[in-house]
Amino acid sequence: MNSINILIVGVGGQGTLLASKLMGKIYIDKGYDVKVSEVHGMSQRGGSVVTYVRAGEKVFSPVIEKGEADVMISFEALESARWLPYLKKDGVVISNTAQIDPMPVIMGNAEYPENPIGLIEKAGIKVVAADALALAEQAGSAKSVNIVLLGIAAKQLGIDKAECLDAIRATVPQKTVEVNEKAFELGYNL
């Protein structure tokens, strides 16, 4: 059983917690030991947020440190750049192309880097980028961005599609199952 480290990053309020919960469930159903570390409280409010999902034979630490993540699932382009050091050098970044300006940029005290995803590629790291919001809207709800990204990640991690869909059906509210299934497919088949 290989151990797997998944870093999920974004901006507080984007729905990173559901993605981590689903990832956790998928690996538990596969028989792994799992730890998921979440961020609650102050940093939730529009700040940079990170969730760690770790799966393996036996997982001790709940956190992922620099150079340890196999995959980063990022909900925002600048956050992909910020958390890049946490990825293994042969890891993969799955990034939403969305740009959300942080307060220092809005105030004109800092600049939003031009094309953060390009900068990651320049650092020699593989990136799968997608406009997850457009795909989520295509699926039927802007709120399903997290499931689109999960779909892309599942493909990259080689997780069985049926296992993911089972986890989604068991986790999301009944009335959103259809939209989320569609969102997952759009990400998976990207």
């Binding site: 507080g12 939730q44 600048l78 910020r82 800092a110 880097p113 953060p116 320049k122």
Partner: peptide, 10 residues
């Protein structure tokens, strides 16, 4: 990345 990443405070 070879660039300053602006902070994102809550």
């Amino acid at each position: 990345v070879d660039c300053d990443v602006p902070a994102r405070p809550p």
